[in-house]
């Protein structure tokens, strides 16, 4: 049984913030602004809780279990403790601290991005095997077309007016398609929001 109090708080908070957006009266804004501040603070606290849960609930727990993953958990815990200790001690604005963090984080994540390029290329190679339908075929053609356009090898088209118009037309297609999809997503988002605001959908137990 969901707690009616938590539901009431959630619905009222949502409606107040929404009303403050629709009708920006000073009284409503005075209520809405601190509420948004609380939401931001709560989100930060939730992040902290989640990190502690990850460290204690997952990685520390894994240390007690045999297996190859134990080593990685040790690395994660040590890295976390080092960053946390030095971050608190030196402060996030310290140049050396920043340099160390970026020297580790940036290369790792950039490498993952490069890995993603290979992964996606490989997936594209197999795409028509996976999606043997007209949607898959259209997707395949689109991938080829826009890769060619974005590679810049059609730069000579500037001298051919018809081709230039055609290419600029092609450039509009993704925007048009995206707009249609985004409209649908917006409606879906509205539906999800309404369900929560009228208290019928409750992703919390209270």
């Amino acid at each position: 049984m969901k707690s009616p109090l938590s539901m009431l708080v959630a619905v009222l908070s949502g409606l107040l913030v929404l009303a403050g957006y629709f009708f920006p009266f000073p009284a409503l804004i005075a209520i809405r602004t601190p509420m948004l501040d609380w939401a931001v603070t709560l989100a930060g606290i939730a992040g902290l809780v989640a990190i502690i849960n990850l460290m204690v609930g997952v990685h520390l727990k894994r240390l007690r279990e045999p297996g190859s993953k134990r080593f990685f958990s040790i690395v994660v815990i040590i890295s976390f403790l080092m960053v946390a200790v030095f971050g608190f001690y030196l402060g996030p604005a310290d140049q050396k601290f920043q340099r160390v963090v970026t020297a580790i984080q940036t290369p790792i994540e950039t490498s993952l991005m490069a890995l993603l390029a290979i992964t996606l290329t490989y997936s594209s190679l197999k795409m028509l095997q996976r999606q043997r339908n007209w949607m898959g075929f259209v997707f395949f053609l689109s991938v080829i077309l826009f890769l060619v356009i974005n590679s810049g090898i059609l730069a000579f088209s500037a001298e051919i007016p018809v081709l230039q118009d055609l290419l600029s037309g092609f450039h509009q297609i993704p925007a048009a398609g995206a707009r249609g999809i985004l409209l649908g997503i917006a409606l879906g988002s509205l539906a999800a929001g309404v369900r929560i605001l009228i208290g019928s959908d409750k992703p919390y137990s209270g």
Binding site: L120, S123, S124, M127, R130, Q131, M135, F139, G180, I181, G184, I185, L187, G188, S189, A191, A192
Partner: peptide, 20 residues
């Protein structure tokens, strides 16, 4: 993400299908 899903996932929910 949807474009990536279409290439990699077994089934992709396009647009508002996810909300359904």
């Amino acid at each position: 993400a949807q474009s990536i899903f279409f290439a990699v996932a077994d089934d992709t929910l396009i647009g508002e299908e996810m909300f359904a």
